[in-house]
Write a protein that binds this DNA or RNA. Structure first.
Lengths: 295, 295
DNA sequence: CGATCAGTTGAAGGGTCTCAACGCGAGTGG
DNA sequence: CCACTCGCGTTGAGACCCTTCAACTGATCG
């Protein structure tokens, strides 16, 4: 709403956009000197993001730097000047916002073939931080190259739009998560969402390994980490899944999904199936009727 | 419905209460400058979004359809086929997701010069619905035109990227909102955020009119609507602001911002300790280090 | 082997949800 | 014009889930 374009290269502007893309990639050398490891090219990025092969071969030789991170390493800090956006090639990240009192609010978990740092576009600085949860590597696309690339290479423009659209959709899932008042429901939704994303990556949707700690999950879901632990125990007791520290196996996927759909009850809907007596560690479905809409 | 152009010109307000909405729009400087005269071409859109004039004049004659909506009217339904993205020219919208049981989760409030419906890019259908909270109008950019426009017209590409980046940043603010467990803090953050956005639109950040109902706010904040009401009362009692139904006036902006920063735990202690109302420096009881995770 | 951290579980207290009731304004139709 | 309805907003009271503090286990590490 205020300043927009002036951030990256206001002097350049329209004229610079006519410059050949390859020329602008001189900056790659600088980046490599700054500690970026091996180099890859645009075709790899586009394939990763699922672009059509017919589009890919045209631009196969455009270089794109790559950056590898160890578990716990920081990709970018909060408030840092935003110099690039990133596409996750392998690994997992968490993005978070640190409050004035030091409270760490996890905002998203980002996996393979997803974008990182795009929310810095339009601001000069990253509004969030990102750290690797495991050994990972990302494609690095400099901000000043982004506009040119998306204009000159249609495949990249499409990929970028798709990825940001998905990122936007993901962030609304976070709201869905927190919308559920009951902590067990939040956790169930989290697991269902995770399961879907595992499936999308070609991995098993029923049995997977959590990359994030209980504290991260707790922050993401907006509850205390003890509550996450208790919720895991509850879901196990009810037979939905099996848990061993960070190994999760979903035993009854359909039932879990149904359970995950329970939301705060709308004001106009009145649950009549009231049974005040079964409220202790019991039925997998239908317990705590107060929060479940009668199905 | 009592809708008014809140903000800097209180004098003109009282008189314009009874005047037809459209007439009032013409009388306000902002709208007059933006050109209410149905200039439905790309240059209007780009100006709205803050693009540089040097970029705008080059493409001034590309037509872009416009759509007007009355208060309560639906822009697009959830699950509907996504055919376009929208840029808000005038008015306010809410986007929301309807659960299987009918619970309506509000995901965002979208105002002037912001994007709507971009999360549908990549999916064929809108993952969320959008309805107008007041009489509004939007620029309509068809999906099939979007790629071409952003490739051939650099200004549009920039504007699109910036807008989506802002949308992403906004959605993370929602998480910040829900992260604060205390309901009063959530509401305080909501008001602070709203205040900033009003200021960004050139309107008064201290006194404004809420376009959304208590229920919408409640859904957005993830609490019951009664709790929102109680939280308003609490903030008023503590002297932070004055409220009359949907009219809000912030009395102590700095104190409110400080209060909004408190995470987790009794908003009580902070709010009630205003014996000496010079209580600006408040380390919010930092005993929440437990939530800091590894780095 | 202490030290530290992640994860689990228990007990107590408090904040929020739900269920009520009430006042208020707008739209409606007799 | 007025009674009526309906939705919005407020407030009170009780139930209950979550937070907090605490202790305990097991794993990793120097």
């Amino acid at each position: 709403m205020d300043r927009m374009i002036e951030g990256q290269d206001q002097g350049a502007q329209a004229a610079s956009f006519q410059i050949d893309t390859m020329l602008r990639f001189k900056s790659v050398a600088n980046f490599a000197a700054a500690g970026v490891g091996e180099r890859s090219n645009l075709s790899g990025l586009l394939q990763l993001m699922g672009a059509e092969m017919s589009d890919v071969h045209l631009v196969a030789d455009t270089p794109v730097p790559l950056r590898s991170l160890r578990a716990g390493e920081v990709l970018f800090h909060e408030g840092e000047r935003a110099e690039a956006i990133y596409f996750v090639r392998v690994g997992t990240f968490k993005t978070f916002h640190t409050g004035a009192d030091g409270y760490e609010q996890v905002l998203s978990f980002v996996g393979r073939a997803e974008v990182l740092g795009f929310d810095a576009v339009g601001l000069q600085r990253h509004p969030t931080a990102a750290v690797a949860l495991e050994n990972s590597s990302v494609y690095v696309v400099l901000m000043r190259d982004m506009f040119a690339l998306s204009q000159h290479i249609s495949a990249f423009g499409r990929v970028l739009h798709l990825a940001t659209g998905c990122a936007l959709a993901h962030s609304s899932e976070l709201a869905d998560m927190m919308a559920a008042v009951a902590a067990e429901v939040r956790l169930a939704r989290f697991l269902v969402q995770l399961s879907k994303r595992m499936a999308a990556c070609g991995q098993s949707p029923r049995r997977f390994h959590l990359r994030m700690s209980r504290r991260d999950i707790a922050s993401y879901l907006g509850v205390a980490h003890e509550t996450v632990s208790r919720s895991f125990s509850a879901l196990v007791n009810w037979g939905y899944l099996q848990v061993n520290i960070r190994e999760v196996e979903i035993l009854k996927m359909d039932a879990l999904k149904v359970f995950a759909c329970s939301t705060r009850r709308p004001a106009d809907e009145i649950g009549r199936s009231h049974d005040a007596f079964l409220h202790l560690t019991r039925p997998p479905v239908g317990h705590r009727e107060l929060y479940n809409a009668s199905l």
